[in-house]
Computed example of a mutant assay.
Amino acid sequence: MEISTENQLVVSTSKKMLKKRVARELFNGLLFASPVLLGFLIFVIGPVLYTVFLSFTKYNIVSAPKFVGLDNYVHLLSGKDAFYYPAVRATFYYVMISVPAGIIFSFFIAILLNMKIRGRTIFRAIFYLPVIIPLAASSVIWLWLLQPNFGVVNFILETFHLPTSLWLSSDGTVIPTLILISLWTTGNMIVIFLAGLQNIPSHLYEALEVDGGNSFQKLVYVTIPMSSSIIFFNTVIGFINAFQTFVQPYVMTQGGPNKASYLYVLYLFREGFQFSNFGTSSASAVLLFLIILLFTWVFFKFSKSLVYYEGQEDRK
């Protein structure tokens, strides 16, 4: 009995020491992580919650927020705001073309940069370089290049007797022009695709060569299926970023001509910081969040049947 009692005391003491050790490690871990956690709570979660709160109020900075319930959402969704739905349409037009175009462009550029060619490192740096240039600066440069009367692009087209364009100065060409400009900053996508291509096992290509496969068959039956997870990732990130496009239309077009490039975030920005309708601006921000959330959910919903992950057969 005495031995049993001593064993119980030893076990009890060990459990207490273990709990104290776990508690101390947890405390130390939270202490070291506290700057990041506090920063996330103060600068991310806090503004998000405050934006949701403002979306139910009428607020113009000068006076205190006045609770108005769902009035801001009704104002936007009912079409009473003459600029909201045109901004939504312009944004969907831009997103639905720019994202697939960016995926296709960056994927095939990554395939070319993955080939064993002379100066490959230099070409990789050239295609990534535009990402480093600030968007505002590159937007001003593109604005000069695409100026209809004395821009360099139209000058080159005239030199080769090719048709010129109004580019950013026409309702019909402004969105396609912004889409073309968006391909300028696909460096991050290219790098991610390149990393994925380098992880494709070479024996898959060798096996296809033995069976008499050509380059196109390698692309269709090996490269694209094995890169499907990377394509999925870049597509999701691309849609999220495209819905939040702001700098290019703000710097180059100010939403014009005739509001043809009045994208969603530009509308949100002007509604809040130009017209001081922070309640309506916050409501539009919440709606944008819900739109992005819906698209992301749809992508993940269908990803299981479209995306291949290495080793997923083993998990089954």
Rank of each mutant, 00 (worst) to 15 (best):
I104S: 02
V247M: 03
P100Y: 09
L204E: 03
G213P: 03
Q274E: 15
V307F: 12
R120S: 05
L113C: 07
Q147K: 13
A23S: 11
R315T: 14
L38Q: 05
L113M: 08
P257R: 01
G212E: 10
A82G: 09
N188Q: 13
S138L: 12
Y264E: 03
N149R: 06
P86M: 03
N188F: 15
L266C: 00
S63D: 15
V140A: 12
D211C: 07
S34P: 03
S4H: 14
Y267N: 04
V68P: 09
T173V: 08
Y264W: 10
I97V: 12
F295L: 12
E310G: 12
R21L: 11
D211N: 11
F243R: 02
M226T: 02
F269L: 03
G69A: 09
E271N: 02
E310Y: 15
P225W: 11
L70I: 10
Q244L: 08
F300P: 00
G256A: 04
A64C: 06
T296P: 01
K218Q: 03
L178W: 11
H161Y: 13
L208E: 11
L290F: 11
L135S: 10
T235D: 06
F107Y: 08
N72M: 01
T13E: 15
K259H: 13
Y50Q: 06
G212T: 07
L294F: 15
P163W: 12
F53P: 02
V10M: 13
G151M: 07
I237M: 10
N154K: 02
V44C: 09
V11I: 13
G256D: 08
K66F: 04
P201D: 04
A136R: 05
F246Y: 14
N7A: 11
Y73K: 04
S182Y: 10
W167S: 01
I109E: 00
R120E: 07
S14M: 14
I181C: 01
Q312A: 06
P201I: 02
F123I: 05
N277S: 04
N234W: 00
Y94H: 03
L157E: 11
V99Q: 02
A64L: 10
T186M: 05
K218A: 04
R270E: 15
F43M: 09
L166D: 06
F160Y: 07
G119Y: 13
I231T: 01
T235P: 00
F105N: 09
K15R: 11
G256C: 05
T296L: 09
L290M: 07
Y264A: 01
D211R: 10
L287F: 12
R21M: 10
G102N: 00
K259V: 13
R120V: 05
V44H: 11
T296S: 10
I111S: 04
S202I: 09
L70Q: 09
